[in-house]
Design a protein around this nucleic acid. Structure first.
Lengths: 222, 222
DNA sequence: ACCTGAACACCGTTCAAGT
DNA sequence: ACCTGAACACCGTTCAAGT
């Protein structure tokens, strides 16, 4: 099938190629398909060849996180001080979209420390936006943390609901899936849960995300 | 070492034994140590014997999540309507504590759908508490979701910072670890981040968690 | 420096066979 | 019904050896 590769220095790969191949793989087949060996196979190379470009599996995952975080345009956080709310709101929505575009990467955000350059850049700009909102002292950095927790946590819970099916189903389909799952909650035991089935089915929607985002922002910088 | 076990129906195990053995294992050696084979070894049984008590690895993980969620006493959510804020606050703090007591389980919460009986019970009581806070219509269920996102997301990010070291280090030690990591952020590139090093080191503390919790609650039911 | 070949110590899961 | 034995198709990672 493939002509057996000779040895020697080829430099056929690069960290970018490895990362993008891994991303395409998980986008196509889901997070469970991610493995050093699988990415190597995709690149037509032996498994251990990847260790020239990536320290280990964890490093590969970190690269994926960095790549996806960079897709959310930080320019959303620019603008006049008085527009701080819409600046943060727009960026949060953009970050959510970027993560949902690559759902297999979302869980990786919650599994490794967020200390890459991309995360630092987000933190820096977000703190500035909260300063524009009038927060002082420790409050801007603390508010930044709360916002990240909300965005990343919301996406991770969303993806967890409907993993295995990749690429992620449409919002409507995911709502339908959740509705079906909650249809069997017995109303005697969990009356409020049963009554809220429709609302809980919407937990995966942008509308619900935006609702929560607005409340969180109101609490942080009313 | 161990006398080779005969075949035949023994019923030496139970789902509880399997779950508790797995929990003890991850508490002792961290989440990376969790495997069907490892738990079987711990129980003195062949790997495939576990499939009598647990459907698969995912089922084992779900059992761990259920077990840990049940450790947070739902009675915190009881009380007079006017005390809704402290009821929710106390429960959120208890859930955080339960999760941090078994840090390896926290990531599993964000990886699988939260639709077990324990999660349903939490949702039901939490919705009731938000109704006591004066929310009506879809708002109680939506607020419930936001609160769960905050608590679970905050703990998952906390654990992600300092995984590998298990049992989880003390709060003071984790703060020191974070401070050390951020000490090298160059102030020219990230002035606000560098200036906030102290505050960001506190992201793993109960104080920071409670600060955010109070803001989130204020936004949800000010 | 970069890649291969081979190996090590693991995985989850299935299935026939014994009791 | 419950467990073993054996097997299958995978993992991440290391290391000596070739170019």
């Amino acid at each position: 099938m493939s002509t057996p590769r000779k040895r020697g220095p080829k430099r056929t790969l690069s960290e970018e190629r490895v990362t993008e191949t891994a991303l395409a793989l998980v986008d196509r087949e889901g997070g469970a398909a991610l493995s050093v060996r699988r990415v190597a196979l995709e690149l037509g190379v032996r498994p251990n060849a990847l260790y020239t470009y990536v320290p280990d599996r964890a490093g590969l995952e970190r690269a994926l996180v960095e790549w996806v975080m960079l897709q959310a345009d930080l320019a959303h956080l620019d603008g006049p001080a008085r527009a701080w709310r819409s600046r943060i709101r727009d960026y949060a929505l953009a970050l959510r979209t970027a993560l949902l575009d690559h759902p297999a990467v979302a869980p990786l955000l919650m599994t490794a420390p967020m200390d890459g350059p991309a995360a630092l850049a987000v933190g820096e700009r977000l703190i500035a936006a909260f300063e524009d909102a009038g927060l002082t002292g420790k409050a801007p950095a603390r508010a930044c943390w709360v916002l990240i927790v909300y965005v990343v946590g919301a996406v991770a819970l969303d993806v967890a609901e409907t993993d295995g099916t990749l690429p992620l189903a449409s919002e409507d389909d995911r709502v339908a899936q959740r509705r079906e799952r909650f249809a069997f909650v017995p109303a005697e035991d969990w009356p409020r849960t049963a009554a809220s089935t429709g609302t809980m089915a919407e937990w995966v929607t942008e509308r619900q995300f935006a609702w929560g985002l607005d409340r969180v922002l109101a609490g942080l910088a009313g």
